[in-house]
Design a protein around this nucleic acid. Structure first.
Length: 275
DNA sequence: CTCAGTGTTCAGTG
DNA sequence: TCACTGAACACTGA
């Protein structure tokens, strides 16, 4: 569930369910890897607190409470935020998501609110982290992140300057959270496809026009995915997204899709249009 | 049984 | 020190 659009959808859900409500029950799994704070400390920090709002930077999410510390969440590769009575969600691969039952399998933290609402954070693969922070935005690990790729995309000039010094493949730079926070593997591939850029090209070898197209594609992909509520069934038919999970396939326009490893990650791209 | 996988971190390299 | 690469982490499902 976890790139910027999915986390923004989780933020919206959390805002609707928890915003303005008081936490009346806290349930923690016995998982010291995902829960960086002890269950006792989490209970003490959360119980009877009111949720003032829900923030996001890149792939990180936090609940702003009426007292410190606040709850900060990173979903890792397989984590997600769920609430009861929401329709079955599909994962990108088309298999059923974990949100179907209640509470979901692999729930690590579950909150109940005074009006009867509930939230659960689940994480099968345990690469996510649930933490307590007094000021999440200015403390580790969020303090190390670059600009939020949706809300803080730098103006063209500054964006070009940021590319200019980096020798890494452009795909690797896009995945670097200290550069653009929130871009993950599928967003990076979609952006490079729409910008018409070969993922292996060194960032500093991009022309000013390449850089402008890249910036525009980041904005277009993220705003479209967020507007769709991160529901991949609603993404445009022309997107590479719908074909990246299948080997030896073609796009909606009949262009062959290739899979290579770039920046240490499986990369789907279309040599016919990416130069 | 094996392996890839919407992510991050850290050791190792040049 | 810097910039970058690749393995490790942990677990499910194809």
């Amino acid at each position: 569930m976890p790139e910027l659009p999915e986390v923004e959808a989780a933020r919206t859900t959390a805002e609707h369910v928890a915003g303005g409500r008081r936490i009346t029950a806290v349930w923690c799994a016995g998982d010291p890897i995902v829960l960086e704070a002890s269950p006792a400390r989490l209970r003490r920090a959360l119980l009877d607190r009111r949720v003032r709002g829900v923030g996001r930077h890149g792939k990180h999410l936090w609940l702003e409470l009426d007292g410190q510390p606040w709850l900060a969440v990173h979903f890792g590769m397989s984590g997600g935020l769920y609430t009861p009575g929401r329709g079955v969600r599909l994962r990108s691969s088309g298999t059923r998501d974990w949100g179907a039952g209640w509470p979901p399998r692999f729930t690590k933290l579950r909150l109940a609110f005074h009006d009867g609402g509930e939230l659960a954070i689940a994480d099968p693969r345990r690469l996510g982290r649930i933490r307590l922070r007094n000021d999440p935005r200015h403390e580790l690990p969020i303090s190390l992140l670059g600009f939020d790729a949706l809300r803080e995309l730098p103006p063209p000039r500054r964006f070009l300057a940021l590319l200019g010094t980096r020798a890494a493949p452009i795909k690797a730079l896009l995945l670097d959270q200290a550069f653009a926070a929130g871009v993950g593997n599928w967003v990076a591939d979609e952006v490079l496809y729409q910008a018409g850029l070969d993922p292996r090209r060194p960032a500093r070898a991009l022309s000013p026009d390449d850089g402008r197209r890249l910036r525009a594609a980041i904005r277009a992909v993220l705003t479209t995915a967020v507007r769709a509520g991160a529901d991949s069934r609603r993404y445009p038919k022309t997107w590479l997204f719908h074909h990246r999970w299948t080997r030896n396939t073609v796009t909606a326009r009949g262009e062959p899709v290739r899979h290579d490893t770039v920046g240490g990650r499986t990369t789907a791209w279309v040599p016919a249009v990416q130069r």
